Simulated assay, not measured.
Amino acid sequence: MLKQILFLFLIGTVTSIATASEDVTNSNDNQNIFQKDNIKIEVSIDESPEGSVIIASTFEDGKAFIPDYFSIELQKLGSTVEEFEFQSSKGVLRSTRALSEPHSFNATIYLTDKKRKYSWEWENLEGRTQIAKKLIEKSQLATSEVQSGTIERHVELLGTLVIPPKNKAEVNARFSGVVETLVADVGDSVNAGDVIAKIQSNDSLQTYIVKAPISGTVVSRNVNVGQLVAGETLYDIVDANTLWAELKVFPSKRDTIKPGSYVHIKKGSQQQDAQVKVLIPSSSQSPYQIAIVEIDNIEGVFSPGDMVTGVVDAQKIAVSLRVENEAIQSMDGNSIVFLHYGNMFQAVPVKLGIKDDNFTEIKHGLEIGQVYVSKNSFLIKADLEKSGASHAH
């Protein structure tokens, strides 16, 4: 239950107006008194851990009595009319069903006794504010719909980008001889099968060709034309279009990382989504495993040797209701979300569940499809607190 929620443009938090000019109406923090002729009723909201119910005491000529009929039609902002029936209990009338949060509404009270019919208007407002459209636009408030979705639990791992072994090649001369031609140079791109060198064999004195075994970039040229070679490496070629992120998985996180786990590889503003390819022991006998994640680097935004962070989706849980984290505010120790109806905003207390970096589960208080303030909701909270009004029943 919200305590001491403040709201704009309201002088009193509970105002009760009788439908006839001769009606008498009074209210205080706990009780609302309505009177017409010799009939008086006192209405309050009884809050308990089991739920809140509406209590009504009815009097005729100052004496308690139970009328022939008593009901209340109640409407909350953006909701349909709810009808509350009552039954007699220990000399008072109690609503037969609970009143949900928020306790902010407009209602009509109906009483019938001995063919006499009475009605009163009851306005009970809390945590509600009205803001002009221009101010809403200026404040850059953003709204979203309450929806179902997933909550993801993340684990961060640190690592380094490397060239996969299959994407590295050392190009050697098959037979000893003299280098006649070197077609490629450092920085050149080559395709698998391209002729990149010609060598005259010492044994046959015939010239044979050397082809690139993989496609990639020449990163080193280790011989020169005219040089006698006997098994030396002519070129080193690497293909950096695909990289491996080698992420360190320490024992405390090992049970949450599996082959196939989804992971977001991040370096600065760059991010790529991938999956854990395999887990292998550390070659240095360090107390961690290595999670290998293969990423696409065709655009060349990453480079071997880059330090990266791997954010692993360790767990995905489907939830019935969720809202963006920024939507949740705290007032008097209670978590609230602001619902939006036109230029009206209503604070609604919510029970929170699990959360991740973006969303929080709502276990109670909201319904799917409701429109809530997802960005800059703190501005509405500030307006409510600035108004200086207080919550009451």
Rank of each mutant, 00 (worst) to 15 (best):
F338G: 02
T309P: 00
N297R: 00
H264E: 07
G305V: 04
F302S: 12
A347Q: 05
S303T: 14
V319E: 07
A347W: 00
L339S: 08
H264Y: 00
Y262M: 12
D306H: 08
V293F: 02
I298F: 05
I328C: 13
S252C: 10
K277C: 02
G342W: 04
G310A: 02
F302C: 11
V308P: 01
D255L: 11
P281S: 03
S252W: 07
N325T: 08
K316F: 00
A314N: 01
T256G: 07
H340I: 14
I354P: 01
Q275E: 10
S283D: 14
S335R: 07
S286F: 13
I295A: 02
P304M: 03
I298R: 08
A274E: 09
L352N: 03
G353P: 05
Q329A: 12
Q275C: 05
S330K: 13
P281M: 06
P287R: 01
I362M: 03
G260L: 13
G342F: 02
S330C: 09
V278K: 05
M331S: 15
I257D: 12
Q346L: 15
Q270K: 15
Q315C: 05
I292V: 13
I298A: 11
A291E: 10
A274W: 04
V337Y: 08
F359S: 08
A274Y: 12
D255T: 15
F302W: 13
D313Q: 15
K351Q: 13
V337R: 02
G268V: 10
G333Y: 11
L339K: 11
H364M: 03
